[in-house]
C-alpha cells in the first residue's frame, strides 16, 4: 500500500514540478496575502506582530484550498479517473498519495511564509521545535481533510465554490490549534502550546483514518 501511495504522490509532485503551477501561483498568492494583511492592519502599530500566528495560518489555509483544488483539477480531464481506477490502486493508498503530495507542497509553502513573517512582520521564533511539530501536524490535518473533501466535490461543476464552503468549517479546529500553538512558540501565547499541538495530531490521525475509509466509496462508479 505504501508503494502505491508513493506512486500517486510521485505522479502528482512530478506534474507540479514540471508545470510549476503550484510553485508559481500558490506561493506568490500566499505571500501576497501577507502583504494585504499589512495593508489592512497598519504595520506600524504592532498589530501585525501580535497577530502573526493567526495571519500566518489564515494565509496557509487559503493557499491550502488552492492546493486541494489543484490536486483534483489534475484528475478532472476525461478518462483520467477511469485510468486511475483501472490501474488497480488501493483507494486508501490513492488517498494517502494525494494527501502526501498536498502535504509536501504545503510544507514548502509554510517554509516560505515562515521567512515571510520573520522579514515582514518581524516575528521572533522562540520555540523552533514546537513550531516544527505544529507545522507538521497541522499540515497533515489540512492535507487529509482537504483530500477527503476535495474528492467529494471533485466531479461537480460547482467544486470551486463548494470545496471552500465544505472544507473551511471543518478546518476551523486546525486554525484554532495551530494559531494557539504558534503563538506560544512565538512567545506571546497563553496556555500550553504542546497540548494544542496534540489536538492537531488527533485531528490529523482522525481525518487520515476517515479519508482512508471513505475514499473508495467516493470514487465508485455510478
Amino acid at each position: 500500500m505504501l508503494a502505491d501511495a508513493r506512486l500517486v504522490a510521485g505522479k502528482d509532485l512530478r506534474i507540479e514540478w514540471r508545470s510549476r503551477v503550484g510553485i508559481g501561483q500558490m506561493v506568490p498568492f500566499a505571500v501576497l496575502v501577507l502583504v494585504l494583511f499589512a495593508f489592512a492592519l497598519d504595520p506600524d502599530r504592532g498589530i501585525l506582530t501580535r497577530a502573526t500566528a493567526g495571519l500566518y495560518w489564515v494565509a496557509t489555509l487559503f493557499a491550502g484550498l488552492l492546493a486541494v483544488q489543484r490536486a483534483f483539477a489534475l484528475e478532472a480531464a476525461p478518462g483520467v479517473r477511469e485510468a486511475m481506477r483501472l490501474s488497480g490502486l488501493d483507494p486508501a493508498a490513492w488517498f494517502l498519495g494525494k494527501a502526501a503530495a498536498i502535504a509536501v507542497q504545503l510544507l514548502l509553502l509554510e517554509a516560505v511564509l515562515g521567512v515571510g513573517v520573520v522579514v515582514l512582520y518581524s516575528a521572533d521564533l522562540q520555540g523552533p521545535l514546537l513550531l516544527l511539530a505544529t507545522c507538521l501536524a497541522a499540515t497533515v490535518g489540512i492535507a487529509a481533510a482537504g483530500t477527503l473533501y476535495g474528492v467529494l466535490a471533485a466531479g461537480l461543476a460547482v467544486r470551486d465554490t463548494l470545496v471552500p464552503l465544505l472544507l473551511l468549517p471543518v478546518l476551523a479546529p486546525v486554525l484554532l490549534g495551530a494559531t494557539r500553538a504558534s503563538e506560544s512558540a512565538l512567545g506571546n501565547g497563553v496556555g500550553d502550546g504542546w497540548s494544542w499541538c496534540g489536538l492537531l495530531a488527533v485531528f490529523a490521525v482522525l481525518y487520515t483514518m476517515l479519508g482512508m475509509t471513505f475514499f473508495g466509496t467516493l470514487l465508485e462508479e455510478t
Binding site: 488527533v202 476517515l210 471513505f214 455510478t222
Partner: peptide, 26 residues
C-alpha cells in the same frame, strides 16, 4: 441521483466527527 446520494451520505456521516472536534477545540 446515485452520485449525489453517495456524496451526501459521506458528508452526513462526517457531520458527527466534525461537530465533535469543533465543539471540543472551541
Amino acid at each position: 441521483p446515485q452520485a449525489r446520494s453517495r456524496m451526501a451520505a459521506v458528508l452526513g456521516l462526517l457531520l458527527v466527527p466534525n461537530a465533535a472536534i469543533v465543539h471540543y477545540s472551541v
